[in-house]
Design a protein around this nucleic acid. Sequence first.
DNA 1: GTCTATAGGAAGATAGAC
DNA 2: GTCTATCTTCCTATAGAC
Lengths: 205, 205
Amino acid sequence: MRRRVAGVGAGVEMHMARRATIDDARLLEKLGCVFRECGYEGASLAVLAKAAGLQKASLYHRFPGGKEQMAREVLAAAEALIARDILMPLKSKAPPAERVDILVRQLNGFYSAGRQACLLNMLSAAPTQEGPFAKEIKRAFAAIIAALAVALRDAGFDARSARVRSERAVMLLQGSLVLCRGMGTTRPFRDFLKRLPQELLAGRA
Amino acid sequence: MRRRVAGVGAGVEMHMARRATIDDARLLEKLGCVFRECGYEGASLAVLAKAAGLQKASLYHRFPGGKEQMAREVLAAAEALIARDILMPLKSKAPPAERVDILVRQLNGFYSAGRQACLLNMLSAAPTQEGPFAKEIKRAFAAIIAALAVALRDAGFDARSARVRSERAVMLLQGSLVLCRGMGTTRPFRDFLKRLPQELLAGRA
DNA sequence: GTCTATAGGAAGATAGAC
DNA sequence: GTCTATCTTCCTATAGAC
């Protein structure tokens, strides 16, 4: 449907690209929800289109590469969001305890208090199958672990302890989300968040 | 193809049910591998049939309920295996440290040293979608956590600590497997197993 | 940029011979 | 019990009007 802007001379907007009914950021967010809920195989074009409020053909117009491109861009957007809201605070100059508090808040929002699964888990394929996103997923995990380790080194841990602790924290995060899905409750994630500061910083030098 | 047994009178075996080319246990194991690798949606009948060494129609003969029945029976078999090889040892009369050692060995075999994902994770659906196996998965998680807690109570922990620790161990297990898939290495799982005895028993009363 | 309509193929599932 | 052949439905993807 063609839209007209009141007061604007007819014909002017016809030479401009028509406005999308949903902007890219919002679209990627809607698609991301589907991929996080259903995984890559489970996310059919029909479901994706319904979530976006668009027809399948409209999705193909905006993602000529089809479902794979959608997932790829969703993943890239998630990486950017993680970099800004999680990695950057972790590597800031603030006191480590404060960085961890920020981390807790950001994680809580990022995973909707345990109601949303992790994209990295849902888009992972078996190593033997070498999924289309293996490189991005590996990079994202490595970046999170590295940023956490930076904060822990700043908190006084040696390089090895910092790395072990940050890996363990990521395991607990992922495991808590798996448990939330499996048990049908957000409690494991909430408990994880409550204990995370202790888990990271207790016993520091 | 009809098989003849040398030395047996012709016609005798014709009245008996023809032998399956793959017995139920082996079949469920093959199908289980596919579900663990690909998840429920990703496990197509074509892939399942190829893994089983059968045609699709043969699978339907043995699982009239189709793919859902296959996954359900695979899950039930896994539950039985867990009960026998993991829960029972955890609830035995042996010293807690010894039970944990057995646990480590069994987990290592069960997950092929980190090469195989967890069926409970791969068959989980979002709580909002109420997947077909929600009840079984929840029950399996609860059973593992409860059995671990029994061993920890016997090790001297109070009920609450035992529960917290056992839940955390399951989170670490699941998280390590997620990380293995995501990073394309079995190291997180192997590290998890190495640290598991400490993780469970350190600081006991 | 979005839509309706449809092509082309893979998916789950069944029929019937052997 | 297993097979080949087939059915139907769903899925990914494209064509073309507006």
